[in-house]
């Protein structure tokens, strides 16, 4: 490069500074997600929460989706180096990355989703504990009450702690509510593979299940297809959002998650300087039940009563070391 061009570039860079400075007034937040934001499900609600927070607090936000754990460290570092002071990890699989980076990059603050309180939480990390298993207990109870064949199926995605505890709590609910019923469950190996999810559901339906608790994201559409093709009526549950239009005759309930609430509260506190804390999402606090449809009369009321108990503090065992 000759001297004249070099000079020109430097001047141009200097001139650009004032504009940059104006944009730099906004504080920055990033979110890292394990799946695509058009899943109309877990990742979509995270994305929506991010957008909401951006509007409320006038933040500059960015997100990375379909991030595999192997790439998460690099992506996080890139964000932090680019001046993003808040990094939200929308998924429990990113916990090891947070544990490694938060102490190193102490200028940034993390919001880490997990299944509960994390041990040895760094001082610049907020901990959202999502008690999936408490919500799924209620779903399991619904299944146990609504099943006519006494077989409740569960389509589980990846063998993560949240899912393991949920399988166990569903089994517990079935035992508590309907001793005759049996739990049939499979691991699909993927939250977002609808073809494999369909195969899983079909196997369970063939084994007699007429109620399926669903713990997959994009895989749901596969389960719905299996249910539609089933030889007898099958009911199913979903979570995060309401999706009645997908299967109006077969969806029984949705366990709704409102991520706006925790993120709104936590981001507000971070911006004021409070950089660590714990927020629990559980039935009654970020987790609600949708309407209950397509079940025999009376079942809906019983389930709402159970939900109220859980909200009020009924103890649901959190079993992580084994599966039923």
């Amino acid at each position: 490069m000759d001297r004249r061009s070099f000079l020109a570039l430097t001047l141009a860079g200097a001139a650009a500074r004032p504009g940059l400075a104006a944009a730099q007034a906004k504080r920055k937040m990033a979110m890292i997600m394990p799946g695509p934001i058009q899943d109309a499900d877990f990742n979509a609600v995270g994305y929506l929460a991010l957008q909401q927070v951006a509007k409320t607090y006038d933040l500059q936000v960015s997100h990375s989706e379909s991030v595999v754990v192997a790439d998460a460290e690099r992506i996080t570092r890139e964000y932090v180096t680019a001046g993003y002071e808040i990094v939200a990890n929308h998924g429990g699989q990113f916990i090891p990355i947070m544990n490694k980076l938060a102490p190193q990059l102490s200028n940034a603050t993390w919001i880490q989703e997990a299944s509960g309180r994390l041990p040895n939480l760094p001082k610049n990390v907020w901990n959202i504990g999502r008690k999936f298993h408490q919500g799924f207990y209620v779903l399991g109870a619904l299944g146990a009450l609504a099943t006519k064949t006494d077989r409740v199926g569960m389509v589980c995605g990846v063998r993560l702690p949240d899912v393991i505890t949920s399988v166990n709590s569903v089994a517990q609910a079935i035992k508590d509510v309907n001793g005759k019923a049996q739990l049939l469950y499979n691991w699909v190996g993927d939250f977002n593979d609808p073809v494999k999810a369909r195969q899983t559901a079909e196997a369970q339906i063939a084994a007699g299940a007429d109620f399926i608790v669903v713990f997959v994201n994009l895989g749901l559409s596969g389960v719905i297809e299996a249910v539609k093709a089933a030889p007898r009526p099958v009911l199913l549950t979903t979570f995060y959002t309401e999706k009645w239009d997908l299967a109006p005759k077969n969806l029984a309930i949705s366990l709704l998650f409102d991520f706006n609430k925790p993120y709104h509260e936590i981001v507000g506190k971070i911006l004021k300087g409070e950089r660590t804390g714990y927020y629990e999402m559980r039935p009654g606090s970020g987790m609600e039940l949708s309407e209950i449809r397509n079940v025999p009369p009376g079942v809906g009321d019983k389930v709402r009563a159970i939900f109220k108990d859980v909200v009020g503090g009924k103890a649901i065992p959190e079993v992580l070391d084994k599966t039923p």
Partner: peptide, 16 residues
Amino acid sequence: YLPIVLTGTFSDNMTA
């Protein structure tokens, strides 16, 4: 075949 027979939707990398 995958969307039109099996799932009724499309998702990233659905051919797996």
